[in-house]
Design a protein around this nucleic acid. Structure first.
Lengths: 336, 336
DNA sequence: CTGAAAGCGCTAACAA
DNA sequence: TTGTTAGCGCTTTCAG
């Protein structure tokens, strides 16, 4: 048994037909006689034949693959989005190449370049730290669907996002409705999403006639930073009774600090997050949050992307999905 | 400007040299004059040239890619392992193709097949639900490195795992040392890892001279099942004071149920998990657990795999990593 | 140092 | 229905 990998050529020889017939048969063409098809399939099976995707992609001039760039895997919400992405892509016969490059913009660019070299037919960006410039440049080569952000748009770019500003307003209004007035905000740093959520916070506070400036603590969407921000908050403004934290992961970190400082959540302090991270809404944590339809967002993005791949010159689609207040166990009325 | 993608040929024309020189220059060969190199690089940049990975892989007879099959993304520990995998693979110039096929063995097989068609040079299995048979068959074609399991071995298969049985013993002994005697176990279902952990539990209970049979509740490694199992446990054996849960995700679910049933953790009930999931050891949850060096496991597996790719006929490597008791906040002495 | 030529495995006309 | 023939874009001898 020759240790060389069998090719379509070997299959043809073994089945006693020509190369091209094998190609046809294997991709299920109608114009192959039943006999030939059977012979070919048998030969392929016996040989343990595997089509070579690289060769096919070369000859075909298409890869049947889309690339997904994930900001990082440490925030589980990206895994949820990815689930949705894979569902739809798989169902449509597309392979998904997933890469993740840490939050470093430079590395993200090189990851993107790798995707492009693989000849992906389109790209999904799940959160990202790329410049508008980079995205525009890439979108010139391939259609792009961006999930969670909507600040970069272009003729070849679709977006799926929720309305972070409204979501944030919803969160703060909920706290206000519970009777809180000294409401703090731990931000998500210097990016569009974080800014929108912060703006929503400021909007809602202003509408409610509440003061807020001292209570905006910078964060960065990580749990550890949320932890430190909460410590800072309770030191600087111990009379604060509630916090809207920019995302769930940070909110979990914040809760840890709050409880370590001797305050019970929600009795002594209310916390509301943002995202709808599966684990956070798990009953153990029971985080009250603004829930985005994460899986659905993944599904929608691929759907749009595949449409654009088939039909490049359609108008860009900018979808907004609705987020919902998920009321759980981390918010309550202030103690007074 | 022609909308066709520029090829090496276009670059050559523009730089005024031959195709093959461009190829050499682009891969950094020494034997290209500085002038030519500069001209070629300039031409490539101006044209926005991207090498075609499919073509290269065809001509090269190697893809410089490894495939990773992840059981599913819902358990965050797999993301941690993946981090380690990507670090090493990236550093060695390998692309990682990540696929995930739900826990369904059939779908997992087809995901594997796709990886093979992409001509990956080796495969990493992060947990999996494949039969020994399938794995053996695949390992015939490509080297495989399996992470977390060690029940399938073969000449072309390396493994990296921790000693689940000892880890489980460590967990139970810790509970015993705190004074617990009515210690339950929520299992991880019907797979080697879960069985090993269960055996460890039984070992430790026996050594300590404690009864255990009524207190083994079947689980499946998910949070929701952990939740239900804990409910079941407290109904069937309300005098239980502690539980060793087969993994962290389930442990979180279990804690939710326990607290809902009015018991404080750790005051009224102790919980210890297994894995060292980043979020669980986060201070908010503060789960006491047996911590596996997840990132390191990912790194080791790729390292072994790449060695085997370079040097196919070496002895299979079966690595055991050490897990540690991570003492946090969910275990305490029994209430009496 | 450079260029011509062959071929990687597959698909897609086009003939037969 | 089947076989033949060109490539797809790139790497790699092998002569200049």
């Amino acid at each position: 048994m020759p240790r060389r990998k069998p090719t379509i050529h070997d299959v043809a020889a073994r089945a006693g037909v020509s190369k091209s017939l094998v190609s046809l048969a294997l991709r299920g063409s109608e114009k192959v006689s039943v006999d030939s098809r059977l012979a070919i399939e048998a030969a392929a099976a016996e040989l343990g034949y595997r089509p070579n995707a690289a060769a096919r992609s070369l000859a075909d001039r298409r890869s049947r693959a889309i690339g997904v760039l994930v900001l990082d895997f440490n925030n589980p919400i990206f895994a949820q989005i990815l689930d949705g992405v894979q569902q739809v892509a798989g169902a449509q016969g597309y392979n998904t190449l997933i890469v993740t490059g840490s939050a470093d913009p430079i590395r993200q660019e090189s990851e993107l370049a790798r995707l492009l070299e693989f000849q992906v037919e389109g790209i999904i960006l799940i959160a990202h730290r790329l410049t508008a410039n980079t995205i525009m440049r890439i979108s010139d080569e391939r259609p792009i669907a961006i999930i969670t952000r909507r600040d970069v748009t272009g003729p070849n770019i679709d977006t799926v996002s929720n309305d972070d500003r409204s979501g944030a307003i919803m969160a703060v209004e909920y706290l206000v409705s519970l009777g809180h007035s000294r409401i703090a905000h731990i931000t998500g740093g210097d990016n569009q999403i974080a800014r929108d959520r912060e703006l929503g916070y400021l909007d809602a506070m202003t509408s409610a006639g509440l003061p807020q400036h001292i209570n905006v603590i910078p964060g960065d969407f990580t749990d550890s930073r949320g932890y430190r921000a909460a410590q800072e908050l309770l030191t600087a403004a111990p009379d604060t009774t509630a916090a809207f934290v920019a995302n769930d992961l940070s909110a979990l970190g914040a809760m840890a600090a709050i409880e370590e400082l001797g305050r019970q959540v929600p009795e002594d302090f209310s916390v509301i997050g943002y995202d709808g991270m599966a684990l956070a809404t798990l009953r153990t944590l029971n985080l009250t949050t603004v829930q985005q339809p994460l899986i659905e967002m993944g599904r929608l993005a691929v759907t749009n992307l595949l449409k654009r791949i088939d039909n490049p010159n359609t108008q860009p689609v900018e979808m907004r999905v609705d987020s919902q207040l998920h009321i759980a166990g981390t918010c309550g009325p202030p103690k007074t």
